[in-house]
Amino acid sequence: MPDQTIVAGENKLPNPAVAGAGKEQGPNGERYFVRFTLLQRYMHAIMFSTFLGLAATGLTIRFSTNAWAQHFALAIGGFGAILFIHKLCAVTLTLEFLYHVKDIAARILIRKEKGILWGPSSMVLNLKDLKDLIGNFKWFFGLGPKPEIERYAYWEKFDYWAVFWGMVIIGFSGYVMWFGPFFGRFLPGWALNAVQIVHGEEALLAITFIFSIHFVNSHLRPDCFPMDTTIFTGVVSEEEFKERHAQEYERLASQGKLDEKLTTKPPTWLLNFSKVVGFTAVFIGLVLLVLAVSAYFRE
């Protein structure tokens, strides 16, 4: 993932983040820090909207014998419309995925950035993640302190890699189905059957995971209920920063880089907009989750 020290300047919010320390403060003297760049926020927005589109149309196709699926298909224009939306979202998400891969590759190979593949702010799993996992389970049972998390927690890394490999697997299997005769020239006969199973089951995993685990872990936890809007505004308060990514906060403070991330409190319209978007996505997701799970167990 992009290193904040490099890309913070790309943040196009009304954001004088380059300004000096302590200049911008909240009403209670609270300070705010950049967590996600504008690009990352847009990437997330494109991803979750296409994902909702893919999930809604994909579940309709997967559970096509259900009455809700047939009514939904009828309402938006039959199977042709369902498949068109599905493919449109798929192509958009594929382009985003390719852009992300290109971005990462360029930063590793061309700009020679450090800390992308390893290091404290990397997305790659490391030993600390295992320690955090064990520590967290101890904490759940009251057997130890809450582990101090670096820039990305292990569950956030899991989200990232689940989506990353999910896109590879679901995307590839989807294109095999889309261009069956073409892939039929290289792939064995059973592969055409296999891709359908893999596509459907992996997508079902993604849907159930995102609409239950990711929603709760990243947006609806008690300590940030009703909605963690960080990914929409890109900004965390100092208190949230210390609480959720204590080790990153300490590392940046000790390196003297904390002030580089200082920014203003997000404007009220952005906070409200974030909540509307967030709750809409959560609502659609939960409806789809209920439909998918109930249909799955009725099969």
Partner: peptide, 17 residues
């Protein structure tokens, strides 16, 4: 029923299947 053919036909045959 497990196939794409069936899914298309269940959701209304805007597309011949």
């Amino acid at each position: 029923r497990d196939t794409f053919h069936s899914q298309v036909s269940s959701l209304g045959s805007y597309v011949e299947v």
